[in-house]
Write a protein that binds this DNA or RNA. Structure first.
Lengths: 346, 346
DNA sequence: TGATGGCTTGCAAACGTTTGTTAGCCCCGA
DNA sequence: TCGGGGCTAACAAACGTTTGCAAGCCATCA
């Protein structure tokens, strides 16, 4: 299973490692080399080109650490995913990954590097400060507030270059980009009721405030209508979710005719479990997801869901962050959720 | 849609920013503070604790840039995804993202930070050197060789701390961890033939060598048997894939009874398209995917696929890299693919 | 009493850039 | 002939740590 090709690691490193080395060869000072490589007009065009050619020839690139230290600008944005509740929630959660992908695109396009951290707040209370005040990043993006809302607030009070993905609460300090989760939850429940459902179930763990607001929204929709809503907690991590769901749905079989899922992933698992239990979707049970991940369109039947515009979210986050770094003001962005009608509703 | 809460960015930064600042308060030198915070036994226990308390109180953390420059160790691993062929392939490709997630877990557990880059080799020929010789990372992980095999070989010749995910070719220089793609392709085709299929189709673009080897494997399986294999190219990116597939499969309708898909994602799209076109899976057409992404088990019917052990792959990659950084020898890892029997085969 | 040695701590030299200031040089005009 | 100004390039001071070396202090021992 494992090849036995050992690979030796002995290679002579090239001799020219610093600006001074190049300078020595070219017969100029390190400072001049620095300017030449930066394309400064202060150095004569001819020597500039000579130096650049020399650097290319020796495959030389200035040490970024030294450069960053000197300029006090790193060109790096920290992206951190706090796994507050849901210790088991893997960083490879599809929603995070999708957002991360878009962020990577946005950031690289603007010349930033992206430093990814996974934080377990319960183990390391200073998970956020560790990133903001390490001198390693120009700004920080927090993906998901989880149960760390207060922590983020506190840090943001002293550290301006921070933008979070999540839910907006009036008066909050930290800049946030996200969807109106409450409106999304309401929209989902209303759609199910419009489809004839009366006994709704909400599937999801509400420790993270985003999810809690979706549940609140669903409750808003129920209020004053001839319908009921039961909340069945269920973890978000892939491994444990399906078993839990099977349990929950079996125990409550027959007592519900529609599901509001806190995420597309939960919706997909629920669909699978219901199918196993012999239910038809949407005839026996209607279901609506949340997120509109690319794979929501691929399920059978295709999943009706509440769409978050992740691509735009990533764009707004980076735009806000860049503004903040440049010293300009930034603003919260609360996006309206959109109902994607597919075939799991009547 | 957008709230108008402008957020001002004016905050007085704390006054204590350097070791020397702390030292001034504590009445010791910067050097001592450095040792104290590092927990060095060289400084008296009492002063050490005083200094640590002081640092905590002022919320001070040593500047990482300076530290890294001085120690010549960054604690950062670069992870780069070359999008060589497939310009349109988004970094949010589920396979990359899944591997990336596991890598993030492995790396953070071992105390490394992860710097993510997306590279478009066609635009920036020095995409890899830019990372290896920037002084910013202790090592580099390349996710997928794409069509950049030679480039990686060349760089690896001078830069030992590099590990790639991909295919192993006898005699290659750069350390690689991956699945035996050819065996996987063969396995898939053999399984389909065993299920009664005779007219196979391979779906996928073979510019990346990993995919090319899967196709070779499938051809191996055909050879000498009463079966045929047609290769239908199809891009890997989500947006364009489905349309292409619809086209391809319609044009060839009836002329095949089984599909070897180059990835689970392609398999899922194919299933959807076939369903639209009124085919039943697996009765009319059998299909086997590749990767065994978490969502392969969620399709309807659940997808038979060739499993790559991504979690183990991430583990091996990081282990190899760590060995290399420590100056120890590393070795290629070629994992055997595993056939995951589900319900898209007979 | 003086030397020895173990603890602590300070000193100062790196790490490799960037960049403000200074200095040489040459050409031009008065 | 001389002064001034425009180009170039060198000098040197940061950026904030880490760490080898030296030095001070105190106690112990001969």
């Amino acid at each position: 299973m494992t090849s036995d090709n050992d690979i030796s690691g002995d290679v002579a490193p090239p001799q020219v490692r610093t600006l001074a080395d190049i300078g020595r060869i070219a017969g100029v000072s390190a400072g001049t080399v620095s300017r030449a490589l930066a394309g400064s007009p202060l150095v004569k065009a001819k020597t500039r080109e000579q130096i650049q050619a020399l650097a290319r020839e020796h495959d030389f690139r200035p040490n970024q650490m030294a450069s960053k230290l000197r300029t006090r600008r790193t060109g790096v944005i920290g992206v951190v995913i706090p796994l507050g509740h849901e210790r088991r929630q893997h960083i490879s959660d599809p929603f995070f990954m999708t957002l991360l992908g878009y962020l990577a695109d946005e950031l690289t396009e603007r010349g930033y590097d992206l430093m990814l951290s996974r934080a377990i707040p319960d183990d390391t209370p200073d998970w956020l400060e560790r990133i903001t005040s390490s001198g390693m990043v120009d700004g920080v993006i927090v993906i998901g507030q989880s149960d760390q809302y207060d922590k983020i607030e506190r840090v943001a009070a002293n550290y301006p270059n921070l933008v979070a993905w999540g839910t907006y609460r009036p008066g909050q300090i930290h800049c946030v980009v996200g969807t109106d989760n409450r409106a999304g939850g309401r929209m989902a429940a209303e759609r199910l009721i419009a489809g004839g459902a009366r006994k709704l179930v909400f599937l999801g763990d509400t420790t993270g405030i985003e999810i809690a607001e979706r549940l609140d929204g669903a409750r808003d929709a129920i209020a004053g209508r001839d319908a009921t809503l039961v909340h069945l907690p269920c973890h978000l991590s892939n491994e444990t979710m399906e078993g839990e769901l099977r349990e929950q749905l079996r125990a409550n079989a027959g007592s519900f005719d529609a599901i509001v899922a806190a995420s597309d992933l939960i919706a997909m698992s629920a669909m699978k479990v219901l199918h196993e239990q012999g239910m038809t979707i949407p005839d026996d049970v209607q279901i609506i997801g949340f997120d509109d991940l690319p794979l929501a369109a691929q399920t059978m039947p295709p999943l009706t869901t509440i769409r978050q515009d992740i691509a735009r979210g990533a764009h707004e986050i980076v735009a806000d962050l860049e503004a903040s770094i440049a010293g300009r003001s930034k603003q919260h962005v609360v996006m309206e959720p959109i109902l994607m009608e597919r075939q799991t509703t009547l």
